[in-house]
């Protein structure tokens, strides 16, 4: 207990992530007037609520040593299902919302089962899921379906005041609830710890008698559910369903999770880290907006550079721990 301050190597990426965020926020605050305000900080959450939710699901997948490429397409599919059921079938939101949430969940179950029972690579299975979900949303309609419904308008436009004259949206509340539940699940439930164990060594987990099959399927189910929930939030945000929604979002998500300190090889990572990862992506965009003259592609280049930084950092950590083992 004395050496609280001494860092485990595995926590180094998380510390790096948080420092990076603080650094970038300070940089923005010093450089631009109006940057250092609570609302700018809260806007990071408002604009990226959906990304936070999928990043949470993706964190579990990556910690377990897998990957889920289908999340972006699931957002599009969910938005289409929601929009067409609401506007074309004229169903009540009480029916629409559960059905929409089922979309990704069911896809997740199927993906998880394929990955586990047929020993297929997560990369390929979720790649198929990605094609499938986007194809299905186009089959519903190739056009944008705009949503005009009191419930959705309410969800989109309500502002929840927070102290200091600032506000957040309902989506932010949902996202934060998801984050807290996920943190609890990751650290205080058997399922959560099994995910880490599988990511550390699937073979060991098997030999230790852990329910590997159930856990793995549940992980992809969870990720699918999160993607659907994010799809709903995205629909609130955009007030429309469209097959091109969230194109390439899976890459942003993976990037956020990696920048958040989760090892892509699995076994280590924190839900909270992924949230900070999302905020870093958000702050890059905010800085670019404030700068005015910088163009949007700098976001991608910056994300790529950060990815490189964190992946190399991870390699160094692995090397050092291997070296320690060789000598120890």
């Amino acid at each position: 207990m004395i050496n609280r301050l001494s860092l485990d190597y595995k926590q180094l990426p998380l510390v790096a992530t948080i420092s990076l965020f603080v650094l970038m926020f300070s940089f923005g605050s010093l450089r631009y007037t109006g940057f250092f305000s609570t609302q700018v900080f809260l806007n990071l959450f408002i604009n990226n609520a959906f990304l936070i939710v999928i990043a949470v699901g993706m964190t579990f997948v990556i910690v377990s040593g897998g990957i889920d490429l289908s999340v972006g397409s699931v957002i599009a599919l969910t938005s289409m299902v929601t929009a067409s059921l609401t506007m074309e079938a004229q169903l009540s939101p009480f029916i629409v919302v559960p059905i929409s949430l089922l979309v990704g969940t069911v896809l997740g179950v199927i993906q998880g089962a394929l990955i586990h029972f047929y020993n297929l690579q997560p990369f390929i299975v979720t790649l198929a899921g990605m094609f499938l979900a986007r194809g299905l949303s186009y089959m519903i309609s190739v056009e944008t379906i705009a949503i005009d419904h009191p419930f959705f308008n309410f969800m989109a436009n309500s502002q929840i005041p927070v102290p200091g004259g600032n506000f957040i949206s309902i989506s932010v509340v949902i996202a934060l609830i998801v984050v807290f539940i996920a943190m609890f699940v990751a650290h205080f439930t058997k399922f959560g710890r099994n995910v880490y164990a599988i990511g550390g060594s699937e073979q060991s987990a098997m030999l230790m008698g852990l329910p590997v099959a159930r856990t793995k399927i549940l992980i992809y189910t969870l990720s699918g559910f999160c993607a659907s929930l994010a799809g709903l939030i995205f629909t609130f945000y955009m007030l429309s369903g469209y097959g091109l929604h969230a194109n390439g979002m899976e890459l942003d998500t993976i990037a956020a999770v990696v920048i958040g300190g989760t090892l892509l090889t699995g076994g280590a990572g924190y839900v909270a880290g992924s949230v900070v990862g999302v905020l870093i992506l958000g702050i890059i965009q905010t800085i670019i907006v404030f700068e005015g003259t910088l163009s949007s592609w700098w976001t991608k280049i910056a994300i790529g550079a950060l990815l490189l930084l964190f992946i190399v950092l991870q390699r160094v950590i692995v090397w050092r721990s291997e070296k320690k083992h060789a000598n120890g």
């Binding site: 890459l251 993976i254 163009s295 949007s296 592609w297 991608k300 790529g304 992946i311």
Partner: peptide
């Protein structure tokens, strides 16, 4: 997968640049 993911993201940004 990871190594080439970096350029998958950044490469497009460079192209846009």
């Amino acid at each position: 997968i990871v190594a080439t993911l970096i350029l998958m993201v950044a490469g497009r940004g460079i192209a846009q640049l």
